[in-house]
């Protein structure tokens, strides 16, 4: 290997390694609540900025509309809204699968009784395309549609 190509290699490697190892530096074990738009989140190092763990900012939604309070506890009347917005993707997947932990949390927040949970899971799966009519359905529309479907279901309409 001649010296020139070696020098080029050194520079390239050092650059690549530095970019790889150093692009994501911060303090705090786990401080970077990376709930940010644009974060790949597949365990790769991303150019994520840190947030202060206040998830309201992370979702780029103001405290006002999300009903967050300064001390981190979500106001009662906003619980469902915040939960649905934060977990929409997981909820969508579990509705298609007919159950799961995120969907169980949703059923609780919607006041579904323990005995009716299975019926709720089945309904979410059977009416999937009505609850989530397109890939662009947002969480508020999803809740609205879900409520309408529940109202038309004999087992769940009494809620």
């Amino acid at each position: 290997m001649n010296k020139k190509s070696l020098l080029v290699l050194v520079t390239l490697l050092a650059g690549a390694a530095a970019a790889h190892a150093g692009s994501y530096t911060g303090a705090g074990c786990g401080v970077g609540a990376m709930l940010m738009k644009g974060q790949k989140g597949n365990g790769m190092i991303g150019a994520a900025a840190f947030t202060n763990g206040s998830f309201c900012n992370s979702f780029s939604i103001t405290t006002e509309t999300m009903g967050c309070t300064a001390d981190g506890v979500v106001k009662n009347e906003k619980k469902l809204e915040v939960y649905a917005a934060a977990n929409l993707q997981k909820l969508s997947k579990e509705m298609a699968q007919g159950g799961g932990e995120y969907l169980a949390g949703l059923s609780k927040l919607m006041g579904v009784k323990e005995a009716q949970k299975e019926a709720f899971f089945r309904l979410a799966q059977q009416r999937y395309e009505k609850i989530l009519p397109s890939a662009a359905t947002d969480s508020a529309a999803m809740i609205k549609n879900l409520r309408a479907e529940m109202a038309s279901d004999p087992a769940l309409s009494i809620l």
């Binding site: 994501y24 530096t25 911060g26 303090a27 840190f50 169980a104 609780k108």
Partner: peptide, 28 residues
């Protein structure tokens, strides 16, 4: 089956936005 609805208490260093490397040093 609704553990997800629990709250957590978390302690962390609060970095300044966009000062990754400097914040690393500050954190130490």
């Amino acid at each position: 089956d609704d553990d997800l609805l629990d709250y957590t208490i978390n302690y962390a260093g609060l970095p300044r936005n966009g000062e990754g490397l400097l914040d690393g040093i500050r954190g130490l």
